[in-house]
């Protein structure tokens, strides 16, 4: 294809659930012969860490289904409605919710964030870390995977100005 399309994504969230859209879209874009760049800023920065420890919480997110990844199909389809009063106060609840989501994803044949990130890199997706937020939050380059570029708003905007698709996630 002569007219290469460009995708520009800002990844601003670092929870397990919101880690998916930027990596899914960027890897799919690369598979569709597009030039993709993901700019990681604020809470999206931890997605670049060598060792990912992503978590998810149902607290403050009433739309999040809570499903059990085991038992009969009917049991797995039950949506456990847990009030914030319990999920927000019970120690270890987020770890449990994270474990359940990871297990459900695995059972449904969804790739892990690590796998999708690796496929992005393999297919030439550019990762840019926001230098300013790194300093504010105390992230260090040595904690991040190789191949990351470090820059600011101008570098993102230069790419986005030419982009056919631009997303803030």
């Amino acid at each position: 294809m002569s007219d290469t399309k460009k995708l520009a994504i800002i990844a601003s969230k670092g929870t397990l659930d919101w880690a998916y859209p930027p990596f899914i879209l960027a890897s799919a874009a690369a598979a569709m012969d597009m030039d993709a760049m993901v700019f990681f800023t604020f809470y999206g920065l931890p997605l670049l860490k060598k060792d990912l420890d992503l978590k998810v919480t149902p607290v403050g997110n009433p739309a999040m289904p809570m499903k059990m990844p085991f038992g009969s199909k009917d049991f797995q389809n039950v949506n456990w409605s847990i009030p914030n009063l319990i999920s927000g106060n019970m120690p270890g609840f987020d770890s449990m919710a994270t474990m359940l989501m990871k297990e459900t994803f695995k059972k449904k044949g969804v790739a892990t964030i690590e796998e999708l990130r690796e496929m992005c890199i393999e297919s030439g997706v550019r990762f840019v870390a926001c230098q300013m937020t790194m300093e504010v939050f105390g992230f260090e380059k040595k904690d991040f995977i190789d191949g990351v570029e470090y820059a600011g708003a101008a570098m993102y905007l230069e790419h986005a100005a030419e982009a056919d698709i631009s997303l803030f996630i």
Binding site: I24, S27, A28, A30, A31, K108, V110, A111, L116, S123
Partner: peptide, 13 residues
């Protein structure tokens, strides 16, 4: 078989 979005596309490519 068994893979979910976007894996079939990525593997095909």
């Amino acid at each position: 078989s068994g893979m979910n979005c976007p894996l079939p596309i990525l593997k095909t490519k």
